[in-house]
């Protein structure tokens, strides 16, 4: 027996009209579960004001955090995936791409742009994990390659923000060769003596770690980001044991000598500018 009895039958108020507060006014941290205002969270570079949890944000957020007044020119914004293999698993690849584009409003798993960062021109590529796990296929490889070309032609530093599960299986051999392509371009960038900063965020694994993400003059990471070549599940299965606490965290990777420093996202822009200024 319920406490309240509904007198009218068939009331069908849509869920969004039932809310008291307008959508998106509050943000709940997935880590500490505490609430804060969305505006407050955004001003805090999408990190939790209580526990400093770094929300897994994508290109839009990084562009707004890094570029002065969110002013930038996007490169190759229209580029989308082909389907060279006519790949079908439980779903045809082009259908998967279309569905993901509709869901995320993104074209693929990376966006590239250039613009002023504290007045200094920087070319950057930022990955979007929301797009098929940030997987690297031909579009990711090609956009990064062209962004590096842009950095070379305009003599700007290059920043790569990685957040990816690795290569995109639906492009098989083509995905694999994007590791080679991006590495080739970064070798050319290196010859030009232009700085390359690789920021690894949560998570960065697989073919991305084994190519451009680990090739920075400066490899840096966000706090507690998962960074590795093989994923934790695969390693657990290989060794048949549970993994030690903190294994493959940014702090672990720093301790083992593969990162230059860990940077809080709130300090990212200032640290980058200081670094680039020192290299001038």
């Amino acid at each position: 027996m319920s406490w309240f009895v509904r007198k009218d039958k068939g009331i069908q108020t849509p869920t969004e009209l039932k809310r008291e507060a307008p959508d998106g006014l509050w943000y709940q941290c997935p880590n500490c579960k505490k609430a804060m205002q969305t505006r407050e969270h955004k001003l805090n570079a999408y990190t939790c004001i209580h526990c400093n949890y770094h929300e897994k944000v994508g290109s839009e957020a990084y562009f707004s955090i890094l570029f002065d007044d969110n002013e930038f020119v996007e490169l190759d914004a229209a580029m989308t995936s082909g389907d060279p293999l006519k790949f079908v698993d439980t779903k045809a690849y082009p259908d998967r791409i279309r569905a993901t584009m509709a869901k995320t409003g993104l074209r693929d798993a990376v966006r590239t742009a250039y613009g002023p960062v504290n007045g200094e021109m920087v070319t950057m590529a930022v990955m979007d994990f929301a797009f098929i796990g940030g997987s690297m296929g031909s579009v990711v490889g090609e956009k990064i390659a062209r962004a590096v070309d842009h950095a070379i032609q305009n003599r700007t530093p290059f920043l790569m923000v990685s957040r990816s599960g690795g290569a995109r299986m639906m492009e098989a051999g083509f995905s694999l060769m994007q590791m080679a392509k991006t590495s080739a371009k970064l070798a050319l960038l290196s010859n030009e003596k232009l700085p390359y900063v690789s920021l690894l965020t949560d998570p960065t694994t697989g073919g991305v770690t084994a190519s451009y993400a680990m090739l920075g003059d400066f490899n840096i990471a966000e706090p507690e980001a998962l960074i590795g070549f093989a994923g934790p599940r695969v390693i657990r299965e290989t060794i048949g044991k549970d993994l030690p606490k903190g294994f493959q965290s940014a702090e672990f990777v720093l301790e083992h000598g593969f990162l230059d420093f860990i940077v809080d996202r709130k300090d990212l822009k200032a640290r980058l500018s200081t670094l680039f200024a020192m290299l001038k």
Binding site: A78, T80, G82, E142, F174, M177, K181
Partner: peptide
């Protein structure tokens, strides 16, 4: 370098 950089299929 050119050979590996030409690998990939994209739509523009």
């Amino acid at each position: 370098i050119d050979k590996f950089c030409s690998m990939g299929v994209v739509v523009e």
